Simulated assay, not measured.
Amino acid sequence: MTTVAPDSDVRRHELAEFLRSRRERIAPEQVGLVRGQRRRTPGLRREEVAHLSSVGVTWYTWLEQARDIHVSAQVLDAVARALLLDVSERSHLFALAGSLDPAPPAQCPSVTPAVRAMLDQLGPIPACVQNSRYDILAYNATYGRLLGNLDDKRPEDLNCMWLAFTDPQWRAAVVDLPATHRVMAAKFRAAMAEHLGEPAWRTLLDRLVGVSAEFREVWARHEVVGQGTKSKDIRNAHVGLLRLEHTNLWLGPGAGPRLVSYVPRDQETRERLEQLERLAEPSAAGVPVSV
């Protein structure tokens, strides 16, 4: 009979091997340490990484031994900096640890300069790029003011699910909030079916369950619905009611990143979007987050 190790055990051992490999590739001189004549350890010693990360030596040793210990995002951030991880390596570290990166990279590989130029050219039509988890990866000026002020949000909060259930400005702008909540939760559940083992999806789900009774209620319905074009009414705080047509344009194969646009359904809405674009222009739109 074949025994399959639990997913958590596999991840801990992968994390331990990854940390060890990154530690062994760094020369002491790269982090300001003096190489002694009797050094036999390739790269850095465990106690040196612990010191650079401001964590206990025993704790870091347990981490490389794949012990079942709690690892906070702040400690992972410190370890990532001590090990000089690049953007891809840092993302891999947090994925293995099942933790949300508190300082995600400033750029997203899904948003090329051409895609960003397209977003800007679409103005005054509100448009953004989202991934299948509903993270907002980039947006133009009009979208940045459509449902509040996205420029004021923390990078880890730039997610449509999170904002729809927790952000007062976003919630106030949605005309039919209960119906929107049901549809969004159903779409999220359908999308999550292909990502059940991924830490980023589980982290977002746990955050929503932990803070929103409304989300817990609609999530318990187990409803699913696919993506599609639909009409949407938004009550913008600056220009009033906007009657829009929600459209997805997929940027790659499968249910990956997509360009989401909100086309006006009438002339009055178009004029109000033009007014909103003029109001939004002084700010810097499109702050991207990690995928």
Rank of each mutant, 00 (worst) to 15 (best):
Q121P: 02
Q121S: 13
Q121C: 09
L122I: 03
L122D: 02
L122S: 02
P124L: 02
P126Y: 00
P126F: 00
V129N: 02
Q130A: 11
Q130P: 06
Q130H: 13
N131F: 00
S132E: 14
R133Q: 11
Y134A: 09
Y134W: 15
D135C: 07
I136M: 11
I136Q: 05
L137R: 00
Y139C: 10
A141V: 04
T142A: 06
T142M: 04
Y143T: 06
Y143R: 08
G144K: 02
G144R: 00
L146K: 03
L146S: 05
L147D: 09
G148F: 02
N149P: 02
N149S: 12
L150C: 08
L150M: 14
D151Q: 14
D151G: 12
D152E: 15
D152Y: 10
K153H: 11
K153G: 02
R154K: 10
P155L: 07
E156V: 13
E156L: 12
D157L: 13
D157E: 15
L158I: 03
L158P: 01
M161V: 04
M161A: 05
W162S: 07
L163G: 00
T166P: 07
T166K: 05
P168D: 06
Q169E: 15
W170L: 04
A172T: 04
A173G: 06
V175E: 15
D176V: 02
L177G: 10
P178G: 01
P178I: 00
P178S: 00
A179P: 07
A179V: 09
T180D: 13
H181Q: 14
R182P: 04
V183M: 12
V183P: 05
V183C: 07
M184H: 09
M184S: 03
M184E: 03
A185M: 04
A185P: 08
A186Q: 08
A186K: 08
K187H: 10
K187W: 06
F188C: 04
F188M: 14
F188H: 09
A190W: 03
A191E: 11
E194R: 13
H195A: 08
L196A: 14
L196H: 11
G197L: 05
G197W: 02
E198N: 11
E198Q: 12
E198C: 09
E198M: 08
P199E: 06
A200R: 12
A200S: 14
A200V: 10
W201G: 07
W201C: 08
R202W: 08
T203D: 13
L204G: 06
L205G: 06
R207Q: 14
R207E: 15
V211Q: 07
V211H: 06
S212F: 06
S212I: 03
E214Q: 12
R216Y: 03
R216A: 00
E217F: 09
V218Q: 11
W219R: 03
W219N: 02
R221F: 10
H222M: 10
H222S: 10
E223V: 02
E223I: 00
V224A: 12
G226Q: 01
Q227S: 12
Q227F: 10
G228P: 08
T229W: 08
T229D: 15
T229C: 12
K230W: 07
K230S: 14
S231G: 14
S231D: 15
K232N: 04
K232D: 01
K232S: 00
D233N: 13
D233I: 14
D233A: 14
D233W: 12
I234V: 15
I234E: 05
R235T: 11
R235H: 13
N236S: 11
N236D: 07
N236L: 12
A237N: 10
H238P: 01
V239E: 02
G240H: 07
G240Q: 12
